[in-house]
Design a protein around this nucleic acid. Structure first.
Lengths: 239, 239
DNA sequence: CCCACCTTAATTGTATTATAAATAGTATTG
DNA sequence: CAATACTATTTATAATACAATTAAGGTGGG
C-alpha cells in the first residue's frame, strides 16, 4: 500500500497515535487543544481536525466542545487496526504484551490451519508452498528468515478463506515481529521449525483439518510455554 | 457510550459506511466526489472531508486527488471495528457470513474460557455469575433472553484479562445477534443451554482451564455443525 | 504513424476567516 | 444556599481561496 504519511493529517495521526500507544498521553489525559496542535505541528485547523477525526475513528480519542480532546479507555481502542498495531510495535513491548499476543495466536492459528485444510483453493496451496520455498532458501541464507516466516503464517490465514481470519494478518505479523525482538538471535530458520511448517502444509494440502489443527497447536503451545516460563522467572526475581 | 451521530461528520460516516457494507458502493467503485457529497447531504466540505477521513481510518475507502474516493479491497476493512460490525448487521447477512462468524467464535471462545480459568479476578467471576442470574431469570421470562446470553459471553471474554480478547466483545456480540436472526424463535433460554453455561462457569471458577476449554468447545462445535448442515442442504437444493 | 512531452482540467489537499453550538466554571440573585 | 444566568473556552460548521496531484487528452518532433 501507499505510505501512511501521504498528507499532513496522516502524519499527525501517526505522531499522536504513537504518543498515545507509548503512553505519553495516557488514558483519560487531555491532548493539546486543536489550536495548540495547530501551532505545535505548524499546520492549519483543517488538517488538525482531520487527524483528530481519524484517531476518533480508530477509537483512541474523543473530542467534545469545551471538554477538549481526551484519550478514551483502552477497551475502546481498535487493537486490530494496522496502524494501531504498528504503534504498539514502536513502543516498548514487554513480556506480558507478548504473552497476550501469543494467547490469541494460540486460539487463531490452529483453527486457521484447520479451516485451510477444509476450504483452501489451489492458489492458496501454491501461496503456502511458495512461502515454504522462501523458508528453505532462508535456511541457506538466501532469503530473509523473518519475512519468509511471516509469509508462511499469512498464507495459511488467507487459505482459511474466512475474511475475519484474513483480517488478523496484521495482528499475526505484529505478534511475530515482537517475538523476534525478544528472541533477538539473527539465526537462520532451524531445520526443526522448517519441518514443522512443512508438516502443517502437507496436512492442509491433504485435507486433514483435525491433524493440521493439532500440529499447529503443538507449535503455538511450545512458544507460549517458553514465554510463560520467562514471566514466571521474572516474577520470582522481582518478588 | 454516546450516540455515534453526535455531529454531522459522524452521521455521514454512518450513512456511507452502511452503503458500503450493504454493497450499494462495491469494492473498486467510486463514491460521489466531495463536492457531490456536500450537495447530497447539504453540508459543508469541512464536514464531508472529516467523514471521508474517518472512513479512511476504518480502512473502507481511499481518496486521492483527481482519482476521487474509492472503496478499497475488503481485505483492508477493519472488520473488528464496532461501527463496521454494526453496518454488517444492518445489511442482509447470509448463512455463509454466519458461518464465518461461528468459525472465529470456535477459535476464540474456548480459549477465552481457558484464559478466564487461569487469570480471572474475583470481580470477573462476579460478573459472570451476575450474567448467569440474568439467564436464569430469562428462563422465567423475567429478563431478556438474548441480552443475558450476550452478557454471559462478554463477561467470560473480559475475564480472560487479555485486551485482544476483550476487544473481540463487539465481534462476539454481533455474531450472537446474527445467530439470533437466523434462529428467530423468541423462545426462552432452554434448560440445557443454561446448564451448559453454568458448567463452564464452575470450571472457570475452580480454575480448570483445559476442562473449561473443552466444555466451551463442545458448545461452539454444536452451533457450527448446525450451520454447516444448513449450508449443505442449501447447496444441495441449488445444485 | 508513434512515442515522448506538454497542457489542461478535475479532484483532493491545505490554509484562513468567520460564526455557531456546546458546556464547564463562575457569578448573580432570590 | 440553591437555582439561575452569564461568560469564556473549546469544538463544530461553513465559506472561500489557492495549491498539489494526476488522469486524460492534445501537440509536436521523429
Amino acid at each position: 500500500m501507499e505510505p501512511s504519511h501521504r498528507n499532513l493529517a496522516h502524519q499527525v495521526v501517526h505522531e499522536l497515535g504513537k504518543k498515545i500507544m507509548e503512553g505519553t498521553y495516557k488514558v483519560g489525559d487531555s491532548l493539546p487543544s486543536e489550536a495548540d496542535l495547530c501551532t505545535q505541528f505548524n499546520i492549519s485547523r483543517t488538517a488538525t481536525r482531520e487527524a483528530v477525526k481519524m484517531l476518533t475513528a480508530k477509537g483512541l480519542i474523543s473530542s467534545r466542545p469545551r471538554q477538549g480532546i481526551k484519550v478514551v479507555d483502552s477497551k475502546y481502542w481498535n487493537l486490530f487496526d494496522v496502524d494501531v498495531l504498528n504503534w504498539i510495535l514502536l513502543g516498548k513491548p514487554d513480556l506480558y504484551l507478548l504473552r497476550h499476543f501469543l494467547q490469541l495466536r494460540l486460539a487463531i492459528e490452529p483453527e486457521a490451519a484447520s479451516l485451510a485444510a477444509q476450504f483452501a483453493q489451489e492458489s492458496d496451496i501454491e501461496n503456502i508452498e511458495h512461502a515454504l520455498v522462501r523458508m528453505k532458501n532462508a535456511t541457506n541464507g538466501q532469503d530473509d528468515t523473518h519475512e519468509a516466516d511471516i509469509d508462511f503464517h499469512k498464507s495459511v490465514l488467507c487459505a482459511s478463506n474466512n475474511p475475519f481470519f484474513i483480517q488478523l494478518n496484521n495482528f499475526i505479523e505484529t505478534a511475530l515481529k515482537i517475538n523476534i525482538r525478544f528472541t533477538n538471535r539473527l539465526v537462520a530458520v532451524t531445520v526443526e521449525e522448517y519441518q514443522a511448517h512443512v508438516d502443517i502444509f502437507e496436512l492442509i494440502k491433504n485435507k486433514k483439518p483435525q491433524e493440521a489443527f493439532d500440529a499447529a497447536l503443538v507449535t503455538q503451545k511450545a512458544t507460549l510455554a517458553i514465554v510463560n516460563k520467562q514471566i514466571e522467572v521474572l516474577e520470582a526475581e522481582t518478588a
